[in-house]
Amino acid sequence: MTNFTYADGIRQAIAEEIERDPSVFVIGEDVGESGGVFGVTKGLWDRFGSNHLWDTPISEEGIVGAAVGAALVGGKPIVEIMFGDFSFLAMDMIVNQAAKTHYMTGGNLSVPMVVRMVTGTAGSTGAQHSQSLEAFFTQVPGLKVVAPSTAEDAKGLLISAIRDPDPVIFFEHKGLYVGRGGPAGDVVKVDPIPMGVGKIVREGSDVTIVSYLKTLEYAQKAADELAVEGISCEIFDPRTLVPFDRAGLRASLEKTGRLLIAHEAPTRGGFGAEIAAFAAEDCFELLRAPIVRVGARNTPIPYAPIMEKYTLPGVARIAEEVRKLVK
């Protein structure tokens, strides 16, 4: 069996792209010799040196700004934001600068930059280290937003993101990293995965569950449980949120006629609302029941495990909502 983790996928994409195009480089806090807090860039400093693994002071706005500037003059930076929560310190550079540069300059300049962000909750990391922020970025015209759920997708999508001429926000769920700091896994060849192409990860006929990142695993487990009860779930992983595979969503709803969206971000204003709107706009005549969203409750993430679990959309809540939906 191949040993190929989510972190391996990301690390290999970075390595292969640096080899292919030396203008690609990584920049961020402790990404160099120490290999990053989550060990994602481990070993790359030995291979490529500090000119391709650029360690920085703790200065998020400066870091992202440096990436934007380098990108304007020929660099292909990959920024690592250790916890996505810290991206707020760099919001000006992401939102006011990078996202709008191509547009404001009438197409004269572009910012080929990837911002990798560790996202989500992974066990009592508390309110400032646990957030799922994708909807903040999907709301900004000019940014592409990627959210891979598997090792293969992480690799294939990161390759595409690095080659993309526009700024890409690349979410990595910390709960999908396995064996932090462990030995590097096998090298698996993965072709670039185009943006805007979703994937059916499970075929079914009663309901379509749209989910991504860590929540996709919960959806799969819920679907296993429901199968025993005779409920057949189809699961659709959009993989990229901007652009979004609206045709793929419609194709699935043609089979099921029912839609449940599950993500870890708070329900209110979450990207699930946008997916629900796509379905209502494109597939109204296919829908046999109201659309259901399962997200985190609208609270900051609490520290205590029992409260944390309650706020998040786990297997049980997804299964329960599907049962109600198909009744």
Partner: peptide
């Protein structure tokens, strides 16, 4: 913090 914060808060 009634268990809402932990060490960091």
């Amino acid at each position: 913090n009634q268990g809402k914060g932990g060490s960091l808060h």
